[in-house]
Amino acid sequence: MRKSFVKHSLVALGLLFSTHTFAATPQELLKQYEAQAKQENSAFTGFSSDKGASFFKAEHTHSDGKKVSCSTCHTADPRKQGKTRANKVIEPMVPSVNAQRFTDAAKVEKWFGRNCKDVLERACTAQEKGDYIQYLLSVK
């Protein structure tokens, strides 16, 4: 009984602090996505910045007829500031320009979660996420 209460309390504490940010590096995030990608695909051979680059620019025709890509909001040059549809500035995606990028795992997952659904109308694979980060790391 007491044990289960302690366990519950720990879970509660975890819930309270789970939304806090934990600093990470883009390389650490890549490691995590690599582990996931290996699980998703046993033939995984690594991430590719070239694939990430074409992923970033690839236009998808949405079910509502609109054409969208990552660059719709982030512009074709990820070193530059982008703009949301509601006219708000999006800071550059490239870590060498904006050191804040890919340093918060929860934030990265939140935005992949939203934007993959908005652009691709499905979730991204770990391979795609890793390629994307690899590409942005390669841009200087």
């Binding site: 819930l15 939304t19 939140k110 979660g113 939203r114 934007n115 908005d118």
Partner: peptide, 8 residues
């Protein structure tokens, strides 16, 4: 747009 948040 998808603006989903975690439940908490």
């Amino acid at each position: 747009e998808n603006a989903s948040l975690d439940a908490a």
